[in-house]
Structures are given as structure tokens and as C-alpha cells.
């Protein structure tokens, strides 16, 4: 409870600083919305002359796409520090300061900087999902909605776990190559039916970097894709397993941490 209050204080502090430049903030929200709309436009244009690809209709794909935008937006609000963790915290030595405080070091890193304008993406995701559900005439009961909340949380957890684990590698070696960008680009692949992709990509999306579990598989339940049901139900489990990997990798990383001494 106390920890939660601390994160709340982090967030309030950030919000105060951000709102000092209010016009700037709304410009950023607008730009984020424009970006999300342009990325969605791909699906709309793709389906103008055709009804379905690989057995999936436009509205079904949009449903999955929206279900991926929601957790992505949530994740992106806190991911700021994970992408330059190696530079900021290891090479510049800010991690010393983190270790001095009696709160989880991972949570401190994640909650230190926020990018609230990306919540626009989540909001658009909610609109897309509800619109697609209405057009598909899905009769979503309370159980479906509860499941979708679980799916969003799992999706968020998968994003945090994957990029947190990659960030933890910076404890062991200086990442001069940059592993995160290609992984980041895979997020998009998780927004389409995995059967579209070659076997190797499918394997990676399921078991190595499980972005297929962010939105595609969990959408199977509300979309009544019964053949995907077992994968669908495994979603929270996959999220937990990858969070476990993150916890292990992070703990090992912190143990291996040697300050730069600056």
C-alpha cells in the first residue's frame, strides 16, 4: 500500500511538470492520435476491395488491432526508461541512486518517467474494439468484458516483461547493437492472425517473444474462434511465465551491477 502511494506521488509529480506546458501537451496528444489513425488506416484501405483474408474479416482484424492498441498505449506510458535504460542508468550511473532507495529498483526505473500522451492510443483502441464489436454484432456479456480486461493486463505484462528483460541485459554487457528495435517492430506482427506468417515467425510470436498472446489469441474468446480456444485460455499463464523470466533476469542483473563510480 505504501509502495502504491509512492508510485502515485511519482505520477503526480510528473503530471505537474508536464502540465506546466499545457498547449504543448495537447499538441502532442493530437499528434499521437494522428499517428494511431494513420496506422489504423492501413487495415481500412487493405479491406476496401476484399472481404476477408485467411478467414478473418475486416472487423475481426480491427477488433484484434484495437485489443493490441489498448495494452500498447498503457505500456508506452511507462516504457520511456526501459528503452534507454543502458545509457541512462548503467553508463551514466543513475542506477546507484535507484539502489539507495528502499523501493523495488525495477518499479523505480519504470515509474520514473511517463508519457501520458500515449494513452490516446489506448483510448482509440477502446473505440476501435467497441465499434468492431458492434458491427460484428458480438453479444458481449460481463464474462467477456472481464476476460478482455484480463487480456489487456496480460498484454501489458507481456510488453513489460519482454522489454524489461531486454533492458536487464544492459547489466551484463553494453548493448552496442540494439536488440530492442527489431523486437519493437514485431509488435505489429502480433496484430494479425499468426497463420498468415511463415513457421519461424509464428514460432517466435508464440514462444520466444509472445506478442501473439497480446491481442490475437485472447481475442479468440469474444470473437468465438473456438479452434483457438486453448491458446486463448493460456494468455494469463504466458504473461505470468514471462513476468517470471523478467523477475529472474532483473535480479541476476542487479546482482551483477557494477557502478561506473561516477
Amino acid at each position: 500500500m505504501r509502495t502504491l502511494a509512492i508510485y502515485g506521488a511519482y505520477f503526480a509529480q510528473f503530471l505537474k511538470a508536464r502540465m506546466a506546458y499545457r498547449a504543448d501537451f495537447f499538441a502532442e496528444v493530437f499528434a499521437t492520435g494522428l499517428g494511431s489513425a494513420a496506422s489504423l488506416a492501413f487495415v481500412f484501405v487493405l479491406f476496401v476491395p476484399i472481404d476477408a483474408i485467411a478467414g478473418w474479416s475486416r472487423d475481426e482484424i480491427l477488433f484484434v488491432y484495437g485489443m493490441s492498441m489498448i495494452p500498447y498505449g498503457l505500456f508506452a506510458t511507462v516504457s520511456w526508461n526501459l528503452f534507454d535504460f543502458g545509457d541512462r542508468f548503467i553508463i551514466e550511473g543513475h542506477f546507484d541512486r535507484v539502489l539507495l532507495r528502499p523501493v523495488s529498483s525495477f518499479a523505480q526505473v519504470v515509474f520514473e518517467a511517463f508519457r501520458i500522451q500515449t494513452l490516446t492510443e489506448s483510448a482509440i483502441g477502446v473505440v476501435v474494439v467497441t465499434t468492431a464489436a458492434r458491427r460484428l454484432e458480438l453479444d458481449l456479456g460481463l464474462a467477456d468484458v472481464a476476460w478482455m480486461v484480463v487480456a489487456v493486463l496480460s498484454g501489458c505484462a507481456i510488453f513489460v516483461a519482454v522489454f524489461g528483460t531486454i533492458a536487464s541485459l544492459s547489466f551484463h554487457f553494453e548493448d552496442r547493437v540494439g536488440i530492442a528495435p527489431p523486437v519493437f517492430n514485431l509488435i505489429n506482427a502480433g496484430r494479425y492472425p499468426v497463420d498468415l506468417f511463415p513457421n519461424a515467425v509464428r514460432f517466435v510470436l508464440r514462444w520466444i517473444i509472445p506478442f501473439a498472446f497480446v491481442a490475437f489469441y485472447p481475442s479468440a474468446l469474444p470473437l468465438h474462434k473456438d479452434e483457438l480456444r486453448s491458446f486463448c485460455m493460456a494468455t494469463p499463464l504466458v504473461a505470468l511465465v514471462f513476468l517470471g523470466v523478467l523477475a529472474y533476469a532483473w535480479r541476476r542483473g542487479v546482482r551483477a551491477y557494477q557502478s561506473t563510480g561516477s
Partner: peptide, 16 residues
């Protein structure tokens, strides 16, 4: 103050 959103919007507009 931040050009992150504008850069992202540009990227998606270009791709499309």
C-alpha cells in the same frame, strides 16, 4: 517540448 508524437505521426503518414 517534445517531438515524439510528431515524429511518430510523420512515420505512419509516410508509411501509408
Amino acid at each position: 517540448q517534445s517531438t515524439w508524437g510528431i515524429m511518430r505521426a510523420k512515420q505512419y503518414l509516410i508509411e501509408l
